[in-house]
């Protein structure tokens, strides 16, 4: 009787350990560490005006992603790309205000920080039809709190068809322009990590 309980307890503990082990191995987003101080350390590669929800997405790249960028090649190992989402300033009619170039103007409030980062060997745990080799995705609050309940598989599915731009919608296209790449390399050179 005693022996049997012991076996059962061991089995239960093992099951817990295994399930924990599996959870840890598949908790991909946790591999991405919040990039503290990105606003001064990263290089901005623009601002997306989102018309359907009147928000502004300020785009940032880690400086090595810029300095090590080579036209026609995969983005460098360690590359981190980031979206800082803010509401757009609105007029009395509730519509976004436009500056002289027809651009939205961001409010100070930050709605969320969306990150994609690549490192050799990452993302191997996902099924082939969604995985973006070697990219992981994560979402944070501006204070660095991880939004642990966000399912990041839709991030992968939607970025998947952009394989020829190394799973990015914007960054690779901005950098493929030699003038942008030169300007951004100059900016990255001035950043202190």
């Amino acid at each position: 009787m005693k022996a049997r309980t012991a076996v059962l307890t061991t089995a239960a503990a093992l099951a817990v350990a295994i399930s924990l082990g599996v959870t840890v191995a598949s908790a991909g987003p946790e591999k991405i560490e919040y990039p503290k101080g990105y606003q001064s350390k990263f290089v901005s590669f623009g601002q997306i005006d989102r018309y359907e929800n009147a928000t502004v997405r300020i785009l940032y790249a880690s400086p090595e992603a810029v300095t090590n960028y080579k036209l026609g090649q995969k983005l460098p190992d360690g590359t981190m790309l980031l979206i800082e989402a803010r509401p757009a300033k609105k007029g009395a009619d509730g519509k976004p205000l436009l500056d002289a170039n027809g651009r939205f103007m961001p409010e100070d409030q930050i709605l969320g920080v969306f990150v994609q980062q690549k490192r050799k060997g990452w993302a191997t745990e996902y099924p082939e039809n969604i995985r973006n080799p070697d990219w992981e995705y994560a979402v944070f609050d501006i204070d660095g709190t991880r939004r642990a309940n966000v399912n990041t598989q839709p991030c992968m599915s939607c970025h998947k068809p952009r394989a020829t731009d190394d799973y990015t919608f914007v960054f690779n296209r901005v950098m493929a322009d030699s003038k942008n790449a030169a300007d951004m390399k100059t900016m990255a050179g001035k950043k202190k990590m």
Partner: peptide, 12 residues
């Protein structure tokens, strides 16, 4: 969506 720097917009 427009990825070109200086003109970036998106309408989902």
């Amino acid at each position: 969506y427009v990825p070109t720097l200086g003109y970036q917009v998106s309408r989902a």
